Structure formats: C-alpha cells, structure tokens
Simulated scan of single mutants.
Amino acid sequence: MKFNIIGVSVLSFLLFACKPSEEKDEWQSLFNGKNLDGWIPKLYHHKVDDNYANTFRVTDGKIQVVYDEYEDGKFGERFGHLFYEKPFSSFILKFDYKFLDQWLDDAPVFTFRNSGIMFHSQAPQTILKEQNWPISVEYQLLAEEKEGDPRPTGNMCSPGTEVVFEGKIDPRHCINSSSKTYKWNQWISGELIVYKDSLVVHKVDGKEVLRYTKPQIGGRVIKGHDPKQKVDGKLLTEGYIGLQSEGQGIEFKNIKIKTLK
C-alpha cells in the first residue's frame, strides 16, 4: 500500500513536470497612473534623466508628451523618448493613444500627427547626449493629415536598424501597415507582439496590420551615436520600450505588457 501511494505521487509529479508549458504570466501595467516612476527620459541635446521642460508628464491618469513649457515655443530638434526602466525580449504590449492639438511648427514636417513606440532599443544610458534617435525598432503612430488622404498607423520605422519583410531585408526606413486612417482626436488601441528576433506583429484595434522578422542593427538614419553600440547585422533579441517625442503632442493610457515564454 505504501509503495502504491509513493508510485501515484511520483507519477503525478512526472505528469505535471512533463506537461507542455503554458502561458501563465499575468498582464503587468507599465504605468501606475500617478507619476513617471519606473520611466527614464532621454532627449536629443540632453543627458539621460533630463526631462527638459517637463516634456513627459502625467495628467488625469495619462502619460502626456507636451511642449507648453518649451522656451519660445521652439522644438529645437529635441527628439526624445521616455523609456521603461527594464528591457523585454518576447512579449505582447498593449496601449491606447490619442494625439493632442499641439504641434511645434519648427519640428520637421513629417512629425505632424506622428509619434511612435520604440522597442528592442538600446539602453537609455548608452544613448549619447548628441545622439538623435536610439538604435531601435519603432511601431509608428500616425493620424489623418489631410481629409480623405490615406495615412495608415501601426507602421514600422527603423532608426539604426533593419528588418526582413516579405522574405528579404527591406531597404526602406519605414514600411506602411494595412490599417485604415484614423482621425487625430480619437483614442486608438495598438498592440505589438514580439518573439525575440524571430517574428514581430503589429495590430491596430485588434486587427493584424503588419508582420516582419529578424529585426537587426543596420541602416543609417541615426547620428551622434557610440560606434560600439552599432554592430550592423546583430540580431535584436531584446531591448527597451520607449514612448516618442517629436514635436507633436500625444497622450497614452492602458500601457500593459505580458511576457511570453
């Protein structure tokens, strides 16, 4: 009898241990709704942790990117990012965003109703003061610019990186998604699914709009970086997530992540 009990216990253990892995991780909120604890700002021409003119702030439970405290209302090429404090490798990221009626007209024209979420980025501490963009991949956020003109969101842009699209490395800096065009003043739900360096999927309002593989360091676009950080051809298996600032006001809420195994 004793042997049978032990045998059953051992069998139960083995069955449990050999059971195929299941995703059990819970969703983790990256934003506490109150302050920017856990986030690190880095702006072009400024050192890491210098949140110039309160560019990134929390208002009514949302992270806002705004410029009302900028001197003389000038952007001054202060391209910036607000990075979450730790890197991620394989994950699902969900978020909601909406553009604000604020754009600094000395910012490049392409930044109008344009922002983004960076991922697989280099660590903010490795971004030099005079480095314009981080080496990263971008889930680009756009909204309608002119009535009736298509302008999809959920695109891919590649500062200091490249991706394989439709079977080959694509030379374009940005690849458009298949999403519809959204009005600038409506909330839009984005989703990013990343499996290390093997597959990346962009979704908008729950619908897949773009997929590509093998994100890797390469291309040009960025300047002022540490050459040691830009090893062209190196596959990106993990990195930091950052909210972008390019002279266009925007706000984010419901930013949450689930890590994948």
Rank of each mutant, 00 (worst) to 15 (best):
Q248K: 04
K2D: 14
E23W: 02
N35L: 11
T59R: 14
W133Y: 06
K223E: 13
W103G: 00
V163W: 15
L15Y: 02
L210R: 05
Y67L: 02
E208N: 01
G33K: 11
E23G: 03
V137C: 15
S115I: 06
V204F: 07
C174K: 02
D226K: 06
K47Y: 10
G160K: 02
S136A: 15
F75M: 10
E208R: 10
A53H: 02
D96C: 04
Q244F: 13
N35C: 08
K98S: 11
I117H: 05
H46I: 01
F88E: 04
H45N: 01
G80Y: 07
G154W: 03
K19G: 05
A107C: 07
S29R: 08
W27C: 06
H225V: 04
K129A: 01
I92R: 01
D205Q: 14
E144S: 15
C18M: 13
V209P: 05
N114G: 01
N35G: 13
I217N: 03
G249R: 08
W39Y: 09
K34L: 05
F112A: 06
P124M: 02
W103M: 03
Q186L: 08
G80I: 07
N132A: 05
A107V: 03
F112G: 02
R113T: 14
E71G: 03
F99P: 01
G233A: 09
S178Q: 14
I175N: 09
G219F: 06
S179Y: 05
F95A: 06
V201Y: 05
L210P: 10
M156C: 12
G160F: 09
P20N: 07
G154Y: 06
F95H: 01
T126L: 09
T59H: 14
S115W: 04
A143K: 10
K256H: 12
V8L: 15
S158R: 08
E162W: 07
S158Y: 00
P124Y: 06
L192Q: 03
S179E: 13
G218D: 15
E246N: 07
F91M: 04
E130G: 05
T55H: 08
P171V: 13
P41H: 00
S21F: 13
G73R: 00
E130L: 09
L93H: 04
K203Y: 06
Q244D: 09
T213Y: 05
Y139M: 08
I241E: 03
S177Y: 04
N51R: 10
I222S: 00
D25Y: 09
L30V: 06
W133R: 08
Y240K: 02
A107D: 05
K228I: 02
G233Q: 11
K86E: 00
H202G: 10
H173V: 13
D50F: 12
Q122R: 07
Y182A: 11
R172D: 11
Q64D: 11
H120M: 08
Y240S: 07
A17W: 02
Q131I: 04
A53K: 07
H45W: 02
P124F: 09
G154F: 05
I5A: 15
K94D: 14
G76E: 03
E246P: 05
R211F: 01
S9C: 12
P150C: 13
F13L: 15
L141S: 03
G239I: 12
T181A: 15
Y44T: 00
K261F: 06
S158L: 08
E191W: 11
I169S: 10
V200D: 03
S179V: 07
F95T: 14
L199P: 00
I92G: 00
S179K: 09
F119H: 04
